[in-house]
Simulated scan of single mutants.
Amino acid sequence: MLRQIVLLVVASVMLIACSEQTSGFKTFSEGQQALQTINNLLSTQEQQSEAASWPFSESYLQARHQAYQGLKTTTLDVSQQAQLNYLIIAERYPERYFVWPVQRDVISQARLVDDYSVNELANWLELVETQLIAAEQSNLKLNKIELTLLHNMVKSHLDNSDDSVQAALNKLNQYLTQYKPRTKLGLVGLANGKDWYQSKLNYFSGETKPPLTWLSEIQASLKQSQNADFVLLVSDSHAKPLVMNYFVESHQHTGLDWQLDYLDPLKSKRKLTKDEQYFWQVMMETDLGIHYHTWSEQQARVSLMKRLGVNQQQADWLIEDIVLYPAMSFIFIN
């Protein structure tokens, strides 16, 4: 009997090993394409063929995890390995509770795919609400900027949907109307938020330093700098982070993160002018202020307007970018 149990255990281990081996990718490009398929409802592209997984559904989380594990079997350069490690670490944190990333219009994207399903969209909208309720029970809440952006997105699709989707949207709209956001804008307001922010700082800066050290170094550099003249390029959308306006257009390197349209930020960034360096140092200071030092929206607004000479509307847009894309500004650290 013992011999049979041992044989069964060995057989199970071999099957698992074979399964893991066959799930690997041959090349980095193959793994990246798999992630693009998994994330296609979070895409900024206008045309999609079919929906692979609804964002942050159970099937999505499983498929994404398998893709990350599959990429481990490929030959990666230092930058690719760093990005993969960063994304794998992010799986530990509460992102999965916030099923609808407020940067992307998932409903409009879903309606572009060939196999668009009204019922599946309605079910996904119910998941959005269910996970937000579960998150509240774990003391995980949207901040007021995220809540406003999500609520506006929901309201933009009201009265323009099929019956089952309309019912789910109405229910979600009612829930968001009474939703009480967390008081702190930054990641520090979430459980394990400081650790999550540290992992982002480590990846985007390419160095492992605590936020207090970064703040001290950045503020020391700002004291030696003069106010800069620059053109602030803002839009009416946060679908793409502001850092992408400072990528090299002619020579971009592929990456793994849907938030960056699958470009490697550390390789794709361009050389900054002196004035642009000053601007991004101010953004880093504000980033640390919001996500680590619990700056209020008013504190961040006053600092940006004073440091950069921008108006209130521009400052608020920059704050939204920092809230939605924590630590990304640190790709421009000297």
Rank of each mutant, 00 (worst) to 15 (best):
R92C: 04
Y93P: 07
P94G: 04
E95M: 01
E95D: 14
R96F: 15
Y97T: 00
W100M: 15
P101G: 05
P101V: 03
Q103R: 09
R104W: 13
R104A: 03
I107M: 08
I107H: 08
Q109K: 11
R111G: 01
L112Y: 08
V113F: 15
D114T: 13
D115S: 04
Y116S: 04
Y116V: 00
S117G: 04
V118K: 08
N119E: 10
N119C: 03
A122D: 10
A122E: 08
N123S: 13
L125G: 02
E126I: 07
E129P: 01
E129R: 14
E129Y: 15
A134P: 02
S138V: 06
L142E: 02
N143T: 05
K144W: 09
I145Y: 15
E146I: 04
L147A: 03
T148S: 14
L150I: 08
N152W: 10
N152F: 07
N152S: 07
N152A: 05
V154Q: 08
S156W: 15
S156Y: 13
H157K: 08
D159H: 15
N160D: 15
S161F: 15
S161V: 01
D162R: 08
D163A: 12
D163E: 14
A168I: 02
L169V: 09
L169F: 13
L169S: 06
N170T: 09
K171A: 11
N173S: 14
Q174Y: 14
Y179P: 05
Y179R: 02
K180F: 15
K180D: 11
P181M: 02
R182N: 06
R182E: 06
K184R: 08
K184Y: 15
G186K: 00
G186W: 12
